[in-house]
């Protein structure tokens, strides 16, 4: 049941404050047309690696919660690291893989809800795009 999907850990993540990063070297905006989720990820890069990240998520609870996890785990990642995180999150949801981060474990309950996978992946896609050369 989806009551499990909306567990307290997810709600706590979604309720966290977020803020944009200014100045930033790159800003990426991505939309999920299905539900109207919109994520903006700002990144300051040093040597291709994320030095600092900011974000603003307008969307469903799952998207906001995933954005908080992304923000917590972006620093130090380069393009490859961000792509690995995205691939890992996707594999967790779609292929039964282990969570690439312990912080993503609460999202395991989203596996059966295919229509919600994009909500969760959107912040990680934005990070991957922000770090891509």
């Amino acid at each position: 049941m989806s009551d499990d999907l909306y567990q307290q850990a997810i709600k706590d993540l979604a309720a966290r404050e977020s803020s944009r990063l200014d100045p930033a070297d790159v800003s990426v905006t991505l939309d999920n047309p299905l539900c109207g989720d919109r994520i903006v990820v700002d990144a300051r890069l040093s040597g291709g690696k994320v030095e600092a990240v900011g974000h603003a998520a307008k969307g469903c609870l799952l998207c906001k919660a995933a954005a908080a996890v992304m923000a917590d785990n972006a620093a130090g990642r380069d393009a490859q690291g961000a792509a690995e995180l995205l691939d890992g999150a996707r594999a967790m949801l779609k292929q039964g893989a282990e969570p690439p981060l312990p912080a993503l474990a609460p999202f395991l309950t989203a596996r059966p809800h295919k229509s919600r996978h994009d909500c969760i992946l959107l912040p990680f896609k934005a990070l991957a795009k922000a770090t891509s050369p």
């Binding site: 989806s2 999907l5 539900c35 969307g59 469903c60 799952l62 809800h113 229509s115």
Partner: peptide, 9 residues
């Protein structure tokens, strides 16, 4: 409450 979450539930 986001409409998508409500619709899902």
């Amino acid at each position: 409450c986001h409409p998508h979450d409500l619709s899902h539930l």
